[in-house]
Amino acid sequence: MTSTPVFGQTRGMGELIEVADKETVLAPFGTELAALGRERPEIVALTADMGRYSDILPFRDEHPDRFWNVGMAEQNLIATSAGLAKVGKIAYCTTYSVFVTRRAYDFVAIACAHSMANVKIFAGMPGLMNGYGATHQATEDLNMMRGIADLTIIDPCDATELRQVVRAVADIPGTVYVRLLRGHVPVELPDSYEFIPGRAARVRQGDGSVGVISTGYMTGRALDAAQAATGSGVDAGILHVPTIKPFDTEAVLEFASAHDRLVVAENHKKTGGLATLVTEAMFDAGVLRPVIRVGLEDGFFECGSQEYLEAKYGVDLPRVLRAIVDGV
């Protein structure tokens, strides 16, 4: 079957754009890191030719003596960061998710995680977050990174959470992999929200019929979908799981047990990420509920606008809404 071409505008390098009905914060990662650098002189930062496209330049501009651009050399980015960590620094570094996961994996595992090195990797364009095709779409990054022992993995939802994560990771021992949101990052969570490393958070109370377990910016999408679902008489609860590793099994099982059926939503392939973690935990504990996985099928994805790709591959708002309301 040949699908009808849909022509739309693409945008560059994972930069989130302002959305009409959303409050946004410009470059929350870099501005928060620059502020943190004022307080903590042991913080240094590096990039592999992705300063502009990872929002880290506010740190460079304010702390130029503590910033290094190693060029397009992701293995060396991780190794150099590890070396800095091993002489007492906390090294924040940025590149695209595809390059740190697929290209520098062994360096993250051995130079960093194995030694519990204080390297904090902020990985741009995780999951399906840009229209540059498979070369730039890290649709299996959670699956890869969860295989590394002693590595902490965080997938923040929005600007509110990302700013807290920037500060929190400085005090998480060892190596941390954070899925970066950049550009005009929306505000989805309330001011009262508190990120606690390793803990999931109930961000919407429902009536116990449908429960959504989500991570990353898909939690924002789940919040929008749950609101829309009330028009159909469905009152869904939402458990946001920002820390993928270590996984908050206890909170997930409690939430799963309290709902008749579940939807798991993630900006990642359906295998190896959040849905796999959730179903593993449920199966091990004997908590059996119907689960719909909203995520990407296995495959490489083409170039195109973000909106086009999300709709085509089933991770957009209508897809989450359909899972919540119709249970399919």
Binding site: Q75, N76, A79, T80, A82, L84, V87, K89, A111, S115
Partner: peptide, 21 residues
């Protein structure tokens, strides 16, 4: 000082150590 053996990983770490010192 470091885990050796995964060859090609140490010189970059040495550069980072030298920068930090």
């Amino acid at each position: 000082e470091v885990v050796g053996g995964s060859l090609g990983q140490c010189l970059g770490q040495a550069v980072g150590m030298a920068l930090g010192l």
